[in-house]
Write a protein that binds this DNA or RNA. Sequence first.
DNA 1: CAGGAAAAATGCGTGCGCGCAAGTTTGCGT
DNA 2: ACGCAAACTTGCGCGCACGCATTTTTCCTG
Lengths: 216, 216
Amino acid sequence: MTTPGLRERKKQATREALREAALRLAVERGPDRVRVEDIAEAAGVSPRTYNNYFASREQAIVSAVTADREERIAAAVAARPSGVRLADAVTDAVVEQYTNTGEREHKALLLITTQTALRDAFLDATAGIEPPLAAVIAERLGDAGAHTARVLAASVAAAVRIALEGWLRPTEDADAAGSFAAGGLVVPSGSLADQLRAALAPLAPAFDAAERRTQP
Amino acid sequence: MTTPGLRERKKQATREALREAALRLAVERGPDRVRVEDIAEAAGVSPRTYNNYFASREQAIVSAVTADREERIAAAVAARPSGVRLADAVTDAVVEQYTNTGEREHKALLLITTQTALRDAFLDATAGIEPPLAAVIAERLGDAGAHTARVLAASVAAAVRIALEGWLRPTEDADAAGSFAAGGLVVPSGSLADQLRAALAPLAPAFDAAERRTQP
DNA sequence: CAGGAAAAATGCGTGCGCGCAAGTTTGCGT
DNA sequence: ACGCAAACTTGCGCGCACGCATTTTTCCTG
């Protein structure tokens, strides 16, 4: 495992090349002015090979921003000392990994905002945090709570998705939101960190209860 | 609203015709022996009109089973007396709507199990319960908890999805699950009701806390 | 280091999702 | 009753996702 083998290295190199090519072309021309054929050609690979790596055209562009955020979040949770509340560990790790963003990623996010299909792909990508997150949570809860860990991880993913949805829509028709939230106070779309913490807060009691069940 | 107008009635009739045609054809031949062209023809409509109603071919088949389960769940929650715990109301409503299944629906589920694409579409359909569920939960929590309601509803949807995933895989390679749950006790895939209750149980503390915050 | 097995890349063909620009039906006001 | 506007349907075309069979590359073992 020290050397993943040339096989795996070339594989990751190709994936990286596709990522970068997709993002670059999407920035240069419009996002819909680029076909998979162009991306494949820019990466020096056949179009058929392209969707051996990415199921949809949008995934390639989005994955340039998403990268391996899933593993980073899981690692960040694992890095917290075991003394702190699990809920805090998860919340802080998520906020940290979503706000510590480079300049290049921020520009790419602006691009994503413009296209509905890209936004959807970006939101769908959040579901990918569930498996690694479930693993680290299960590690803290012990084997008995493996099932609970899975549910909690999925809930976190859902909450993050909601936070992102609420965040990347500054340009929304005001009347379109009047379906049922006409009662008045809708969150005025604060910073991303605020949105994430607000979305994750309701889940904290569930984490506390799960944690209490294994460490009384 | 008494008479939805002939426009809307024909629309629902077409949707129903497509649903039934898709399910019938999928049962008669194999699920992959049926093209959208066939379904559209059986429903007396153009193929292009077909995906004015359904985004994917699988959605039509699945929707014959799913129907309007979303609204039924929301209605079932609203029907519970306001005295009971919100967590119990939601859990019972979900279990009730997923287990009170007719004979025809059960046969269709067996069909869905066979095809991976159909299973995925079926699982994706569970996300549809979020909006109506968020509405009824928000109604109980008051306008201040609208945001919390959204998160809780999404968590419920995620939990239900996990329960369904665990339920409809009796035919899984034993070693395929050995990725990280090698610790030993994996749930032996009990009844659907058990799976649903087990998946929703970890969320109960979150519901209790949210409820407590509005009615001290 | 040679050769064979495993894995990945590629070509090809099919069906599908969807935008666009007509044509057709429904509903509503006068 | 009539006609107009909005909603729905339909034909057309393009690009894409993916299964299958073949070729090329990587890896391991004797």
